[in-house]
Simulated assay, not measured.
Amino acid sequence: MRKWLHQNPQRTWTPLLALLWLSLLVFAAVVAGLLPQQLLSPDLLNSNAPPSTPSHWLGTDPQGQDVMAALLYGARTALLVSIPSVGIAAALGTGFGLAAGYFGDTRLRYPLAYCATVGCAFLCFALFKISFSWLLLLLLSALSVGKVLTRFQFWSHRIALPLDQLIQVCTSLLSSVPRLLLIITIAAAIEPTLLGLVLLLGFTSWTQTARLVRAEARRVRQLPYLEAAHAAGLPPLRIVWHHMLPNVMRPVITTIPLSIAAFITLETTLSFLGIGLPPEVVSWGKLLALSRLAPSSWWLLLFPALCLLATTLALRSVLAFKKR
C-alpha cells in the first residue's frame, strides 16, 4: 500500500477515505448492536424536529424517533443483510461453477438405475406437490431401489450426466428474469424476516459468480499439473478442492466489494418499498420512505442517501485500489 501511495500521490486520499468510511460503518454497526432499543421509541412531542435540536443532533422522523440512532441501526441492518448474502451467493456460484467447469458433460457418470429412480422421485415431487420431508424419504427409497437394480447388467450401465448443460440452463433461466423484479415478487409473497431476506438475496444472485468460476475452471482444467493429478489417480473431489479451488478464487474475491454494494442497494430498495424486512427492523430504506410522509423534512432524505452513496463509492474505490 505504501508503494502504491508513493507512486500515485495525486490519488492518496481516495483509498484512505474509502477505508476510513468503511471502518466507521463497521464501528457504527457494532455500536448499534450495543445501544438500547429505547433510542428508537416514538416521541410525538419532538416529531419532525430539525437537526441541531438538543438531544437530537440529526433531527427526528414523523414519529419522533432519533435519526442518528436510525442511521446506526440501518448500518447494522445493511451489513447483516449484505455480508451473509454475499457469502451464500459466492459459495453457491463457486460450487456450481467448479462442478460445471471440471466435470463438464462427460466426466460425471452414474449407473442408469440411480438416474432413473432419482429422476422418478423428483417427477413425483413436481406432479403431486409433496412436502420436502416426504421428498427426502422418497429420495432415500429411490437410492435403495437403485442399489438393488444395479445388480442387473442393463441397469448397471453407467451414463454421463450433462452437468454443465444443466447448470447452464439454470443460470440462463435465473438470469433471464430481472433480478430486482424476481426478488420483489418473491419477497412480497413470503413472510418478511431478516433470515428470509438473506437467503432470498443469496439464492437469486449466484449466477454471475458461477459464470466467472466456470470459465476459470475450464481454463485451469487444461493445465499440465491437473493432467498430472489425473494420471496419479487422485480422486476428483480432492483435485477440485486442493488444486482447482485456490486457482479460481481470484475473480470471486475481486467481485466481493461490488457484490456487497449491490446487496446494500437492493436491501435499501426493498425497505423503501416496504417489503423484505419486518416492520420493527430499522434500515436506511425505511428512513428514506418516511421522507414521503414529511416532504419538508429534508434531513430524512439527505442523511440516509449520503450514507448509501458514500458506502457504494467506498466499496468501488476499494475494488479499484485492489486492482492496482
Rank of each mutant, 00 (worst) to 15 (best):
residue 193 T to H: 09
residue 260 I to T: 04
residue 185 T to I: 10
residue 168 Q to E: 11
residue 281 V to R: 14
residue 125 F to K: 07
residue 67 V to W: 01
residue 56 H to F: 15
residue 247 N to D: 05
residue 52 S to I: 12
residue 61 D to H: 06
residue 301 L to G: 12
residue 314 A to R: 01
residue 289 A to C: 04
residue 286 K to I: 11
residue 25 L to F: 10
residue 22 L to Y: 04
residue 96 F to G: 07
residue 303 F to M: 09
residue 205 S to W: 03
residue 39 L to M: 13
residue 264 I to R: 03
residue 300 L to S: 05
residue 112 L to T: 13
residue 283 S to P: 09
residue 134 W to H: 07
residue 124 C to S: 10
residue 226 L to W: 07
residue 196 G to L: 13
residue 222 Q to W: 06
residue 291 S to F: 02
residue 94 T to K: 02
residue 154 F to Y: 11
residue 102 Y to M: 08
residue 106 T to W: 07
residue 313 L to K: 05
residue 107 R to L: 15
residue 67 V to C: 04
residue 58 L to D: 04
residue 231 A to S: 13
residue 253 I to S: 00
residue 184 I to G: 00
residue 50 P to G: 08
residue 23 S to Q: 02
residue 299 W to R: 11
residue 232 A to Q: 15
residue 204 T to H: 06
residue 246 P to W: 07
residue 233 G to I: 14
residue 102 Y to T: 06
residue 145 V to L: 15
residue 38 Q to H: 07
residue 282 V to W: 01
residue 149 L to R: 10
residue 166 L to M: 14
residue 25 L to C: 08
residue 54 P to V: 12
residue 28 A to K: 09
residue 179 R to A: 10
residue 71 L to D: 09
residue 10 Q to D: 09
residue 201 L to A: 08
residue 6 H to E: 15
residue 172 S to V: 12
residue 157 H to Q: 15
residue 230 H to G: 03
residue 277 L to V: 12
residue 20 L to R: 00
residue 120 C to N: 07
residue 129 K to P: 00
residue 218 R to I: 11
residue 179 R to T: 11
residue 224 P to H: 10
residue 141 S to V: 13
residue 281 V to E: 05
residue 260 I to P: 06
residue 257 P to W: 02
residue 244 M to G: 07
residue 323 K to M: 12
residue 282 V to S: 08
residue 235 P to Y: 01
residue 95 G to W: 02
residue 276 G to L: 09
residue 161 L to P: 01
residue 134 W to E: 14
residue 207 T to C: 04
residue 88 I to V: 14
residue 113 A to L: 04
residue 218 R to T: 06
residue 300 L to W: 06
residue 297 S to A: 15
residue 317 S to V: 01
residue 276 G to Q: 05
residue 250 R to Q: 10
residue 296 S to E: 15
residue 277 L to P: 06
residue 162 P to A: 09
residue 161 L to D: 01
residue 137 L to I: 11
residue 241 W to F: 12
residue 12 T to W: 07
residue 210 A to N: 01
residue 15 P to I: 14
residue 300 L to F: 06
residue 283 S to I: 11
residue 123 L to F: 13
residue 240 V to Y: 00
residue 226 L to K: 08
residue 5 L to W: 07
residue 131 S to M: 04
residue 99 A to I: 14
residue 39 L to A: 05
residue 256 I to L: 12
